[in-house]
Write a protein that binds this DNA or RNA. Sequence first.
DNA 1: ACTAATGTACTAGTGCGATAGGACACAGCA
DNA 2: TGCTGTGTCCTATCGCACTAGTACATTAGT
Lengths: 133, 133
Amino acid sequence: MFAFRLDSRSGVPTYLQLVEQVRRGLLLGYLVDGEQLPTVREVAAALVVNPNTVAKAYRELERAGLAAPRAGQGTFVIAGADQVPPAVHARLSARLRAWVRAAHEAGLAPEQVRALVTTVLDDERTTARAEAA
Amino acid sequence: MFAFRLDSRSGVPTYLQLVEQVRRGLLLGYLVDGEQLPTVREVAAALVVNPNTVAKAYRELERAGLAAPRAGQGTFVIAGADQVPPAVHARLSARLRAWVRAAHEAGLAPEQVRALVTTVLDDERTTARAEAA
DNA sequence: ACTAATGTACTAGTGCGATAGGACACAGCA
DNA sequence: TGCTGTGTCCTATCGCACTAGTACATTAGT
């Protein structure tokens, strides 16, 4: 069963964290088409948040066409066609894990690793936007 | 002069985004010790946010010991000893950029690249925590 | 002394995420 | 037919991020 995680220090609203995790799971193939998400009450109990917060996340997923509720049964995800092939995913994630290990061995703290990743990704975003213009 | 950027869709409060960017700049050496940050009014005008929001970010930086205000002059950063050496930083960021390019050439959308990076980093965090226990 | 620029402080108000508690409609099962 | 579990809806409330406008203390430069 799909499991959610929360980072209370990130400043990101709880319901958005849940939405993003499902979205990521779908993009990367961790969630297959038709798979059932944990029920609202299960998630609320596991994460110690209000059921309404989880329901808000599920409603947002439904609005985005990424999930559909079935009364009395639960909520089930709907996978799009834009998934990463398992082979590509395995190769890229392995290479990225190797990079993280290298950074760690170079003496970088986890916080510095995240800072470097964030900076590089932000730079890529702005350069991509600049090239598009 | 150091420049700030905002991502309104992230859900992260404005003042926290500013704090994080200064923190990252210090960790990665983009900000050197004693360097002046743009003034509260400059940032507020450039990002079209309330000066109080910027002031709150600067106050938070001061509280964290990462910056010090000088009345009438501006706010100046205080660098710690935990910076990444430029050579290491250059090597790691180049390798990471290469990975991002490879992911792009493999057909991954920027959103999928971010999803993959987030997932790998989150996994590293949990495995590191598990090893520590 | 005066001016300009800076960071700071204060009060009031707005919007929204989150909580709390309760109620409802629908599907599956005995 | 009832029971259970599911998602959904409603109202009220709290806290906090953010806005708005203004005023003040300090410093540098003239």
